[in-house]
């Protein structure tokens, strides 16, 4: 039985999504993408400085990669929608990661604005991938708004703390049919494996790979971890403890 990963009806070849930010150079970034075997890669839309030499990001992205623009910088739904439309006009495709952050201290997403943006962009035919704080009611609202997936944070951006929101993610996996893609906060390959063992459909990692001493090797490590976690989930873990009971205090009365 093949393990197919689909988002919005499209086959995606890898359950490891990689961010392109914070790499030491575009060359390292490209090698990391190759080592990660990621098919979906995120990028940000930024203003171009007319006076300086700007390298073209897209020139360093391997062929066959799906670009997913991140609306980072948006402080409300309106700004996120604008970034999405600009990205599309740039020719960056229909995949859009909605990231609306109004809190600059902790970089936590604004769920309400994210939902608003999701509804508008889904209606315009974007493949909406919303980054949000893992609340089940908001997940349902995102689904109803037309989101193609759910991207709950594991921990605040850049903290590398791992699955702080583990229990909430488990609930999302249990209750929602949309693919749950854990995004943000995953600091080590073991975190990624753990997320996959819980039943997440995929993970998105950026900081942990880009800021590693050897980003290319770390990208490969994450790829292996994601595969291992996914296999474990499909295999169905065995029971953890075998309790042998010498006495039957609760059902002894049955004889």
């Amino acid at each position: 039985m093949t393990d197919q990963f689909k988002i919005a009806g499209r086959n995606v070849k890898s359950r490891f999504l990689l961010g392109t930010g914070k790499f030491p150079s575009n060359a390292v970034m490209r090698s990391a993408i190759v080592a990660s075997r990621a098919q979906i890669v995120t990028a940000a839309l930024r203003r171009v400085d007319l006076d300086s030499e700007e390298e073209n990001l897209l020139a360093h992205i391997p062929e066959g990669t799906i670009m997913m623009t991140n609306t980072s910088g948006a402080r409300d739904a309106g700004e996120a929608v604008r970034i999405a439309r600009l990205s599309r006009a740039l020719g960056a495709g229909d995949w859009i990661k909605i990231e609306v952050i109004a809190d600059n201290k902790h970089l936590l997403p604004d769920n309400a604005e994210t939902i608003k943006a999701a509804a508008i962009l889904a209606a315009e035919g974007f493949i909406v991938m919303p980054y949000f704080n893992p609340d089940l009611a908001d997940a349902r609202r995102l689904r109803d708004a037309g989101a193609a997936s759910l991207m709950p944070l594991g921990a605040p951006i850049g903290t590398n703390k791992g699955l702080c929101t583990k229990e909430l993610i488990k609930i999302l996996v249990a209750e929602m049919d949309l693919p749950v893609i854990v995004d943000a906060g995953l600091g080590r390959p073991s975190h990624a494996a753990e997320a996959m063992e819980l039943g997440a459909a995929a993970v998105l990692v950026n900081t942990a790979v880009a800021s590693a001493r050897d980003p290319v090797r770390m990208a490969g490590a994450f790829a292996l971890a994601v595969e291992a976690g996914r296999s474990a989930w499909l295999a169905g873990p065995g029971s953890v403890s075998e309790t042998a009971r010498a006495s039957s205090p609760l059902t002894g009365f049955l004889g």
Partner: peptide, 9 residues
């Protein structure tokens, strides 16, 4: 049943 009972309890 005792194992089920412990968990149910």
């Amino acid at each position: 049943l005792e194992e089920l009972a412990v968990k149910a309890n």
